[in-house]
């Protein structure tokens, strides 16, 4: 596939997904430009901000997934592998259970994510020689700990808030409303990351190779870890723990544009965003008044799509 075709395709995909999100909803189908005043308010005050939230979240998760996979040199890594979503979830669920309505859930989630990030950073550094394995184990064990706490909260929590807690855990954009200005920090962040993209290519070759090619791998590792964690923390506080986007989109895009991060990062950002916008539109529109958590849809669409491509791909071994 020629690269111009790929980029045009991705941009068209984003545009179509946003148009779909604006035109379709549980209130019915309407082209934004033919809508009467009431529908225009629905489109511009409800559907568009939610679509932008989905676009931002999807992009953040896809990029964070790319970073984690190269950072841990592990194709199974996703943005949540080091326990960031778990930390966010425990704080968010505690807020819901204890009825801390004066603290917004996104703020609590972000606090939990940051706390986990710092914990992995401090504990993962260790005292001996530095290793990726130690960081991975620290994160995975922390994630397991958070998982136990989540089960505990679900088991002991009041039934009234159970549904909202489950929705949060599966990822839900119902309350996410972002203005278009949110795209600005995302774009700036992506621009900054793009400057690091070739370093990521070098890091993919391993610590020693990276050091020999001029990357002081330890500092670069933590730098990228912090960026990836912050992106994930933002995504989780916007939309809860939306699964699969951060795992599947990087792999899909690697099949399409290759492993060079200068192409992979922007491609993953575009496709991840469009993917989540479409999934969220389906989640809130396809079943009439009944809304589904978007995480269910990302998995239901993502898993067969990914398995099909994996089956047909000759380049993954």
């Amino acid at each position: 596939m020629s690269s111009r075709l790929v980029w045009t395709g991705l941009l068209v995909l984003v545009a179509i997904s946003l148009l779909l999100a604006c035109a379709w909803g549980s209130a019915g189908w309407v082209w934004p430009w033919t809508a009467d005043e009431a529908m225009q308010r629905v489109v511009f005050e409800l559907r568009l901000p939610r679509a932008i939230a989905a676009l931002t979240t999807g992009s953040l998760l896809a990029v964070a997934g790319c970073l984690m996979q190269v950072l841990l040199r592990n194709p199974l890594a996703d943005p949540y592998v080091l326990g960031i979503s778990g930390g966010a979830a425990v704080f968010a669920l505690l807020g819901m259970t204890l009825g801390l309505s004066f603290l917004p859930v996104p703020l609590l989630a972000f606090t939990g994510a940051l706390l986990t990030m710092v914990a992995v950073f401090v504990l993962g550094r260790g005292s001996g020689p530095w290793s990726t394995t130690r960081v991975l184990l620290t994160g995975v064990v922390l994630a397991a700990g958070w998982g136990a706490l989540i089960s505990l909260i679900l088991a002991l929590g009041p039934d009234a808030s159970l549904r909202s807690m489950l929705f949060w855990l599966m990822g839900d954009l119902s309350y996410a409303q972002l203005s278009a200005w949110w795209l600005l920090p995302l774009l700036l962040g992506l621009g900054a990351l793009w400057l690091r993209a070739r370093s990521l290519n070098v890091l993919a070759g391993g610590q020693m190779q990276a050091a020999l090619l001029g990357e002081s791998s330890r500092e670069r590792f933590w730098e990228i870890y912090l960026i990836a964690s912050l992106l994930t923390a933002l995504a989780v506080s916007i939309a809860g723990a939306v699964g699969f986007v951060g795992l599947i989109v990087p792999h899909l895009m690697r099949l399409v544009v290759g492993a060079d991060h200068r192409r992979l990062l922007p491609a993953a950002a575009l496709f991840g965003g469009a993917f989540l916008v479409v999934a969220d539109t389906l989640a809130r529109s396809a079943f009439g008044a009944r809304q589904l958590p978007v995480g269910v849809l990302t998995a239901l669409i993502g898993v067969p799509l990914f398995l099909l491509l994996l089956h047909r791909a000759v380049r993954i071994r």
Partner: peptide, 29 residues
């Protein structure tokens, strides 16, 4: 520069791209 005893390629790239990684220290970000 050093040729190490073992080389692991983590991600798929073609040979030319892989060799081009050697230019990394000579290039600005």
């Amino acid at each position: 520069g050093m040729l190490t005893q073992h080389t692991r390629y983590a991600f798929d790239a073609n040979c030319e791209e892989t060799a081009l990684v050697g230019r990394h220290p000579h290039l600005q970000a």
